[in-house]
Structure formats: structure tokens, C-alpha cells
């Protein structure tokens, strides 16, 4: 059976609820539901009305928006411990993004009212939310600068590093990255074909390898150099 008790949740220390007491969480979140999603299943549709937040237990969720000419743009990948929907909660609006499971995902759904009650009862959570929002803005504004200042190749190296280091559970450098080419291309607004070229070039240079359709970073230092445009030509 899956964990449905916040007290036993191993992810608590990585999440926004880190500083909340177990008893309080269990009391307030008594209505939470553990939901399962298959690969490619849609968790939130863009413009769905806000009903609650999702706390990811297992798997990876793609958070994306429909941009220009109905092209998808991936804003971020949510990992276990991440919460989806905080900003929709704050603005009390419909979701301005879509969330899709890219592998099998289990997530706790916390209804709107319960989340609100936690905010009222435990002010420490607002400090955490402020921190989360600050980090998200910083990461996006960093990418805005990268889009205008870096080549697609450099941006892709940067994206791989940020995906690899964002994994909250472990910081192993050679964690396989299991995203589809299409999703990776949609994080930097390039085409699948162009991204294939970059990946095969990275593969030739022994920076990454492809194992069972998953990307594994082989050489972090080299990748970092590519990301800052300091790659040696040799």
C-alpha cells in the first residue's frame, strides 16, 4: 500500500511542508487523495478551474503552457516533493498551464480549502511559498537571459544540468534522464531534429550516452563548460 500519511512521507523534508508539524498536516490534510496517473496522462488541463494542489509522490510531471501557434512550451519538470498549482491557488484563478505525467506518477491531491486552512493555521508555510516562488522566478528569468544570449546547444547543456541537479532525492551525476526528445525540445523551443543532432554530437564527444532511451550524463565538467560557452575546440 502507498503512503497516505504525511507523517510517514519520506518526501516531507524536501517539500514546502518541511517545517509544519506532522499532527497539523495529518489533521488538515485528512481529505487528501492519492491519485495514480499513467504515462502521458493529463493531470491538469490548461484553463481548468483551480480545485486544489498536487503534491508529487513518485514520478515526473511536465508543466507546460500552450504558446504561439499552439506549440507547447515546457516551463518546468516537477519531481517528487514538488507541489503543482501553488500560483493558481494564490491567484484564485484557473490553471494557466497543463500538467502531464511523463512516467507513471502518483500524487497527493489536496483540496483548495484544506490548503487554505494550512496557510491560515501555520504562517511558516508562507515563508516557504515565498521561497519556492522566488526560486521559480529566478530559474525562469535565468532562462530568459539564456534564450537571448546563448546558442541552443549551450541552452540544452544548461537544461540537462538543471534537470540533473534538481532531483531532490539524490544528487547522483549519472542519474538517467528519461524525457522524450519532444519534451526536451519544448523546454528550449527548438525542433526535435535539431535536438537529435546536438545529442548525437554530445554522444560522440562522450558528454552524454543514451541507455535504453534514457540520457545519462557522462561528463559533468565538459557539459558545464559547454553550458557557459567555454568548450575547448579540440
Amino acid at each position: 500500500m502507498k503512503i497516505t500519511n504525511c507523517r510517514q512521507c519520506g518526501l516531507k523534508q524536501f517539500s514546502a511542508f518541511q517545517d509544519c508539524s506532522d499532527d497539523l498536516l495529518n489533521e488538515i490534510f485528512s481529505n487528501k487523495e492519492l491519485k495514480q496517473y499513467d504515462k502521458n496522462e493529463i493531470i491538469i488541463q490548461q484553463n481548468d478551474p483551480f480545485r486544489g494542489v498536487f503534491c508529487i509522490q513518485e514520478g515526473t510531471v511536465k508543466v507546460s503552457t500552450i504558446g504561439n501557434k499552439n506549440k507547447e512550451f515546457v516551463l518546468w519538470f516537477a519531481k517528487p516533493g514538488d507541489i503543482i498549482g501553488i500560483d493558481s491557488f494564490i491567484n484564485n484563478k484557473s490553471h494557466l498551464f497543463a500538467a502531464t505525467a511523463i512516467v507513471s506518477v502518483s500524487a497527493c491531491f489536496i483540496p483548495d480549502g484544506d490548503f487554505k486552512e494550512l496557510l491560515n493555521r501555520d504562517p511558516s508555510i508562507s515563508r516557504k511559498i515565498i521561497k519556492i516562488l522566488c526560486d521559480e522566478i529566478s530559474s525562469i528569468e535565468g532562462r530568459i537571459a539564456s534564450v537571448s544570449q546563448k546558442s541552443i546547444r549551450e541552452q540544452f547543456a544548461e537544461m540537462l544540468i538543471s534537470i540533473a541537479t534538481k532531483n531532490k532525492k539524490s544528487l547522483e551525476a549519472n542519474m538517467p534522464i528519461s524525457y522524450s526528445i519532444k519534451d526536451l525540445a519544448s523546454t528550449i523551443g527548438t525542433t526535435n531534429n535539431y535536438l537529435y543532432k546536438i545529442i548525437s554530437d554530445f554522444n560522440d564527444k562522450n558528454v552524454v550516452t543514451i541507455l535504453n532511451k534514457k540520457l545519462v550524463i557522462k561528463d559533468f565538467d565538459k557539459l558545464s563548460l559547454i553550458a557557459i560557452g567555454e568548450e575547448s575546440v579540440t
Partner: peptide, 12 residues
């Protein structure tokens, strides 16, 4: 929100 809008525009 503004930043997300901006990055989407910039990339696409």
C-alpha cells in the same frame, strides 16, 4: 506569470 509568458514568447 509575466516571466513565464516572456520565456514562452522568447523561445517560440
Amino acid at each position: 506569470r509575466i516571466a513565464e509568458q516572456m520565456i514562452t514568447n522568447m523561445a517560440q
